[in-house]
């Protein structure tokens, strides 16, 4: 049986001098097309490392990642990343930041006018057309992250990788942006892998939640399917029994069975 994306027996160890620490141990995870999967765990458990391995930014020590039947081991636009700190280029305008990605990915296949239209279309998806001529330093943190999402979407990735995309935002902006991402997932049907440490966010957005044990030698502790219908409404879910049950399961995992240990 073939899966859309498969993380296959991945180990990752870091070497410092003579000591070698195994950070991730035997991670195997399948993600289906159109699925929204969150990876949650305490800080230091290696969840960002796992995302970087899928992105190809960090090589796996053992094992590999297979996407649509082909192994991927270097970064590419088919696995676009939305970075935690947005990573927009400060010397380019909002439009040019997205356009750089569009030009690089569709330089051969789309005409100049089509690339311009595609850039504007993606800015429009995240409601950022109004600020297209501004530089990143002139817009708010939430807006920067929207542009980061537009840049990633514009690459038409097979898998969209979100690395704690809302981590640096205040609660209200975060909720607003979560709704935007939910809407986009509904509309475009992207396959998404998201790193998060926010339980509510994971339950609200995901089809499945991958819970990781504490590092070193972090493993997948449990995978929880979220049986909530889409489209999901934040306010309706607050009192929803299934939502609360999922939330409780994740909280139990994180705070009872795999409590955060201060670095020994």
């Amino acid at each position: 049986m073939t899966h859309y994306c498969r993380i296959d027996h991945v180990d990752k160890s870091f070497k410092r001098g003579n000591t070698e620490t195994l950070v991730l141990k035997d991670i195997t995870l399948e993600v289906e097309k159109g699925e929204y999967v969150s990876i949650i765990g305490h800080s230091g458990c290696g969840k960002s490392t796992l995302l970087n391995i899928v992105a190809g930014l960090t090589p796996a020590t053992n094992g590999g990642v297979i996407l649509e039947g082909r192994e991927v081991n270097e970064p590419g636009p088919d696995r676009a990343v939305v970075f935690q700190n947005h990573s927009l280029l400060p010397w380019l305008t909002v439009y040019d930041n997205v356009r750089l990605a569009v030009d690089k990915v569709f330089g051969q296949t789309k005409s100049r006018a089509e690339r311009d239209a595609w850039t504007l279309h993606n800015l429009n998806l995240v409601q950022m057309t109004h600020a297209k001529d501004k530089r990143p330093s002139e817009i708010s943190g939430g807006m920067k992250q929207r542009v980061g999402i537009a840049r990633a979407l514009a690459m038409e990735p097979k898998v969209l990788l979100l690395d704690e995309p809302f981590g640096a935002l205040d609660a209200l902006t975060r909720a607003h942006l979560q709704d935007t991402v939910m809407g986009l997932h509904q509309k475009l049907g992207n396959t998404v892998m998201m790193i998060t440490h926010d339980v509510d966010e994971a339950v609200l957005l995901s089809d499945r939640i991958v819970m990781m044990t504490n590092g070193p030698e972090a493993q997948i502790g449990e995978i929880l399917s979220v049986p909530l219908m889409r489209p999901r409404k934040r306010l309706e879910l607050v009192a929803d029994a299934a939502f609360l049950k999922c939330r409780q399961r994740v909280l139990e995992f994180l705070y009872e069975r795999h409590q955060y240990v201060e670095a020994a």
């Binding site: 992105a55 190809g56 930014l57 270097e74 970064p75 590419g76 636009p77 696995r79 676009a80 990343v81 970075f83 700190n85 990573s87 280029l89 750089l100 990605a101 690089k104 990915v105 690459m155």
Partner: peptide, 12 residues
Amino acid sequence: QDYRNVAAVLRL
């Protein structure tokens, strides 16, 4: 490193 990552993902 962020800019290098962006460049890597875009395959500049």
